[in-house]
Design a protein around this nucleic acid. Sequence first.
DNA 1: TGCATTTGACCATC
DNA 2: GATGGTCAAATGCA
Length: 378
Amino acid sequence: MESASSWEYNSLINELTQGREQAMQLRAHLNSTPLTESQDLLQSILSSYEKSLSILKWSEPLVQPQPPALPISTVLESSLSVDGSSLSDDLSKSIQAHNECYSNASKKRKAMPTWTEQVRINPHTGLEGPGEDGYSWRKYGQKDILGAKYPRSYYRCTYRHTHNCWANKQVQRSDDDPSVFELTYKGTHTCNLASRSATLPPPSSEIQEMKHDYHHHSNNESLQPGQMIMHLRTNLRVETNDLETTEERSPFSAPPTFSSMTGETNECSLTVLPANDHRFPGTYTPSFISPGSSESNYFSTSSNQMYDFKKIHDLKHSELEQNGMFSTNASSTNSPITNGMFSTNASSTNSPITGLEFFMDPVDLDSNFPFDTTGFFS
DNA sequence: TGCATTTGACCATC
DNA sequence: GATGGTCAAATGCA
């Protein structure tokens, strides 16, 4: 069904695509002369185009049913981690793969959606870990797994009884790389933002232990934000399995790249491995971290709550202001790209992912779109 | 004292 | 019977 809005949508896609192509040409020219600042700026332009295209493509009216929402971090990651010449192709393939995966998964539904993430603890800062998705988890069991070097921990949402939230997750430390944790999420949170604890609980015991070890053996090194971003970009890996349709979830959080699909089991695996792609200087991080001071003033892009971004996206500015989610303060100085930057707050009590930044290019945000970065640079 | 974690036991599935 | 997942009493901590 072709409509005026559809035509406008396509025009917008075309315009953005054209702008991106031109920016990429400019980058090719700039590559011959190492002008770091210009390239950073150019990268931010490209990122903006990619994000816009991603969002537009995901928010396009899809053939029913829509795919389940998947981590927006992976959407953003995908748009940045591919080489500059095939961004659209990769995104299209990802969307197609995701849709196929979803289609397969729908044939064999299980009781709860299940997906897996792999996260790595930063050896120097301990900034990344499985307990840092913004939700409040309560450990209810630990089990030695056959063939696994480390025990598996079982967590459930703290608000299981109070808010009837049946989200679970399992944390399994990797045998091959002890700094890597595999997180298996089962079920989606129904406790939502409003039910989350204002002061988030401490990270998983495994993470605290790891952080202790790392800090003990390291020389109190700390990575600069850019380094942390690159580290995260290099190590972030997200897999999804047996994703279920959840109407409340948004296409904004769909995974961009399905590296593998196992048709027989209807398991869909997503791998986002930026690997050694250093062409993009890390203008994203996958997680928004709670400032820890309010339940409603943060959102995270972690797997279980990617749809939060959509919720925020759907909010009118007035609503955002009323909720105190954002206020204007663009005077951040700790980044080469200062305009329109999200920066995570380092005070989240249960997250070692601190000090990370989420850059937003000016074009992404309405000039009236308020953000409060006041507490982000403490 | 209340809450979170630990850990052995129990249950379900293959 | 083996294994994974969950329960619940015991324990620890602030």
